[in-house]
Nucleic acid binder design. Structure first.
Lengths: 335, 335
DNA sequence: CTGAAAGCGCTTACAG
DNA sequence: CTGAAAGCGCTTACAG
């Protein structure tokens, strides 16, 4: 070695062991700097069978919510001096499994999974810590917002504005988020006013799904159709916005719309979308932190989301407000 | 070993060497399957100093164009039995460099870089093949579309529709794409009609940039403002759309708008955006293929883009069409 | 055709 | 406090 010491000593200096005498340490450090020496990651990994990379698997990197999540996770990983390796499962269970295997083969430090939509009970046996983010994977601890509580925020908002004829566009029932948001919203509306008219529809979380459902929904005569629509995702809500525009319906004058997630785009559509803000930075950071803890705690963690009120929600039109036709009970669910 | 052979032989079977006798090979393969043995990637990498991972660095994974690029690259890598490791540079030169170093440390098979916006002449000396994608990095070979040719397609379209008072919102002048698109558009318009009024503005590639510029531009009286605006990115164009909407301007009735890239969202805004489709799949695939070739060829490659005509472009309003005020030359550039 | 052995570049007990 | 040595799990000349 340039500094005339053994490789073992260099390794100790690199590891920051205090057992190495200061003078020697400085000399070695100088040599390291002078040669701009970088330890071989592979050799280290082979020896210790662990690395500084955290694997992240998202269902679809093309989805703005997940790409923001990925950006946040990368930032958090970086702060903890780790790298992030990102993979996209295309909502495909097999791809998800093969990505997990690939990560495990590389002996990553840990894996964060936003589970694919398809419900499944995978069995992954490994010493590598795994946490689920936003959508639970198998039975690994989950970091997410409290979906039900967050969805109830939207219900409160609609109710306070005076809406009593409301539609909810739910996410897939095979996702916890889809179910919890729906339940949170529906329960709160019912709790506030058992007589409020509430229609529920189920779809996927994407733009098209919201648009298709809204188009059908809004084709009804004004006194029949909802004065407010809450969606389980911003993408759905933007689809609704689009349908409303196509039908010449003023938002929020004739129809209020609220989304969920606060993706970047929510603040760019016209009108800007009232929505629930997911604290993606905090969620991603917690996932990273949990992974890095010596002993991975088994419990789930739920963070709080917040309501962001923007231009897409307002009181119902005057001729509709408070009118509570007792035309008999409507079928409350219709999926 | 379970099959009673040496590790060397196992290694040869795994490598598919034909020198191993068929009977032995089958026996070993059975043992491999039975134990579901997976070779240690780290050890292999240490020995051969190469891996099956391709590193991809994009300026901002949150930008839909890049996330689609990433998805395409991952698919292409997968087809060639490689994994993709994705990093986001946040348009920061230092982060970009540190990601390159991290990839090199992991002895990746190759690196694909969509360069950060900031112009710079990095010096990376390595045996690892590197290609630039979409935006050139240092002096590494570039895979991109022919931006000038593609932008000219939009110019042709506007001209054919009858627009003669046109604005162009350019991308950053410190990017090749920004410059080439602008040049392609401007040259074509000038070539078609030297008297056509053409105003040029420069901005960033994002939503806000388009919106801000358009707001100013469209505040002018109808006979002064352009009848068509071409933008250097879909995000800018969507910003323009938004400004037009806020000002109560009908698109495409009073104003035609065209974007560039054909991000997913372009087909979801109202009206749907006329734009230039980048063949992201092919671009990403070519980048991967180039990387995997034994000898990386130094030349650039340009693919062709195509015009996608949708609802945001139409002939100019009748009272504006063909009116060619000879009110003297306007200042052609104004940035 | 197949085995024994060297060696990739580290980390970490084990001596001293 | 520091060095010499073993060993992580592969691949690949080198023998035979």
């Amino acid at each position: 070695m340039r500094a005339g010491v053994s490789v073992g000593t260099v390794s100790r200096v690199l590891a920051g062991e205090l057992s190495v005498k200061t003078a020697l340490r400085d000399r070695v450090q100088d040599a390291i700097d002078a040669l701009s020496y970088r330890p071989n990651v592979m050799a280290r990994a082979l020896r210790t069978s662990t690395t500084d990379v955290i694997g992240l698997i998202v269902p679809d990197i093309t989805n703005p919510f997940f790409s923001q999540m990925a950006a946040s996770a990368e930032r958090a990983a970086f702060e903890y001096r780790h790298s992030l390796m990102l993979a996209s499962s295309h909502n495909d269970r097999e791809a998800e499994q093969s990505h997990i295997s690939a990560f495990l083969d590389r002996s990553v430090r840990g894996i964060i999974i936003v589970a694919a939509n398809v419900s499944h009970s995978a069995h992954v046996k490994t010493k590598v810590p795994i946490v689920s983010l936003d959508r639970r994977f198998a039975d690994f601890p989950l970091i997410s917002i409290n979906h039900a509580e967050a969805a109830a925020l939207v219900a409160d908002h609609f109710y306070e504005l005076g809406h009593r004829r409301i539609a909810y566009i739910a996410g897939p029932a095979d996702t916890e988020a889809g179910r919890a948001r729906r339940e949170g919203f529906v329960d709160r509306i019912r709790a506030l006013d058992a007589k409020a008219e509430l229609e529920i529809f189920s779809g996927r979380f994407d733009y098209e799904s919201g648009e298709v459902i809204a188009r059908r929904l809004l084709a009804q005569p004004p006194n029949m159709r909802p004065t407010a629509i809450a969606a389980a995702s911003d993408q759905q809500a933007i689809g609704v916005l689009r349908a409303a525009r196509d039908l010449g319906l003023d938002v929020p004058g004739a129809l209020s719309i609220a989304g969920f997630d606060d993706i970047h785009l929510a603040n760019l559509v016209v009108p800007r979308l009232t929505t629930v803000r997911q604290p993606t930075d905090q969620l991603a950071r917690r996932a990273v932190e949990l992974l890095l803890e010596k002993a991975l705690e088994p419990g789930d963690e739920a963070l709080s989301a917040s309501l962001v009120i923007r231009g897409s929600t307002a009181p119902p039109p005057p001729d509709q407000a408070g009118d509570q036709p007792t035309e008999g009970p409507k079928s409350p669910q219709q999926e």
